[in-house]
């Protein structure tokens, strides 16, 4: 028999001594800050101004993947949701739902990566929760995070703000997160030199807003990929969009993997990219600023907003023809046909 200490037991979630030990030994020291350390029933802090508030649950499988893990993802995802409203993310909650039998060592790795992500993004975890569910009731570890952020004066970013004539910027290459995760799943057996792009984009957004406060829309093309995000924005703003296939940054390995599995990279998830829509006069300036940031180095102007075909996204192909880019329907499944 292996020692019982290195696994999470149901008792770790019972509210008793083991629960306390887990919180006080494994979580709080790592995420330590004055608000959290009080360990009251709720986090108490002062904040005034226009607030943004969001929550998201993370259930990625496998929980470790090239370029990140579920912990980093759970912070970056919520940071990015706030940043896409132009908010500066500040205070976070983290709730862990752990499957009985989960290795403590793996939990520690994830706690550390949560800590690193919060440090990079400059946010604080001020409250949290831990539950343990019987084996089989969850897949290793689920994480829910929520966050609040402050929106600076004068910033008005919304998915419904795109105007005809606006330029569409993309902060870098697409498709890496989705493929990095998929490459780790059973039964596919590819060795793919692709890392998840999972990253907090709030500082990139600050840089971009410094170059132009006129940014109309920001959104991170996560599930459903770039195609789905552009469709959402086109529908919300009741405008059409034209993009250029040639200008969309794409790593060769991503392209190859997509060819192999029959995917279209436009539909593969990203976790560290953003789409920005802004007036044409500011486009170059924001692009240049974007490229100074490590998460925007391969940024590009990929298209523009048009009056025609509201709610529709049309792509100019390499051959100079055009093609309608629809939302993703159904799951992304590898195909052989």
């Amino acid at each position: 028999m292996k020692s019982t200490e290195d696994r999470i037991l149901l008792a770790h979630g019972s509210g008793g001594r083991l629960s306390h030990e887990l919180v006080q030994k494994s979580l709080v020291p790592s995420w330590s800050n004055p608000v959290l350390n009080r360990l009251d029933d709720a986090a108490v802090f002062k904040l005034s101004g226009r607030l943004a508030f969001t929550t998201d649950s993370y259930v990625v499988s496998p929980i470790f993947f090239p370029g990140g893990d579920i912990g980093k993802l759970s912070i970056c995802g919520t940071v990015n949701d706030l940043a896409m409203c132009g908010a500066q993310p500040l205070y976070f909650s983290v709730a862990l739902i752990i499957e009985e039998g989960f290795r403590l060592a793996e939990l520690e790795r994830i706690v550390t990566s949560i800590k690193e992500a919060t440090e990079e993004a400059g946010v604080e975890i001020v409250t949290g929760d831990t539950k343990v569910v019987p084996r089989g009731s969850a897949d290793k570890l689920f994480i829910n995070t929520a966050g609040v952020g402050l929106i600076p004066e004068g910033v008005d970013i919304s998915g419904s703000n795109a105007r005809p004539g606006d330029k569409i910027l993309l902060s870098g290459t697409i498709g890496e997160h989705g493929l990095a995760v998929m490459s780790q799943r059973e039964s596919l057996e590819f060795k793919i030199p692709i890392q998840s792009d999972c990253a907090p984009l709030n500082k990139l957004v600050v840089d971009m807003l410094a170059a132009s406060p006129e940014i109309h829309c920001l959104r991170d093309p996560t599930r459903g990929g770039l195609a789905t995000t552009l469709n959402e924005l086109a529908t919300q703003s009741k405008v059409g969009m034209r993009i250029d296939e040639e200008n969309i940054p794409l790593q060769e390995a991503v392209r190859a993997t997509c060819e192999l599995l029959g995917f279209d990279p436009l539909y593969v998830a990203n976790e560290g990219k953003l789409v920005a829509i802004l007036p044409p006069t500011d486009a170059e300036r924001v692009l240049n600023q974007m490229r100074q940031n490590c998460y925007g180095r391969e940024g590009a102007i990929i298209g523009e907003v048009v009056e025609q075909h509201p709610g529709r996204v049309v792509m100019r192909t390499r051959l100079g023809t055009s093609r309608l880019i629809d939302m993703l329907s159904g799951d992304l499944l590898p195909r052989i046909c």
Partner: peptide, 8 residues
């Protein structure tokens, strides 16, 4: 190998 992606 295809563009850095390998498989048996």
């Amino acid at each position: 190998e295809i563009a850095g992606v390998t498989r048996q």
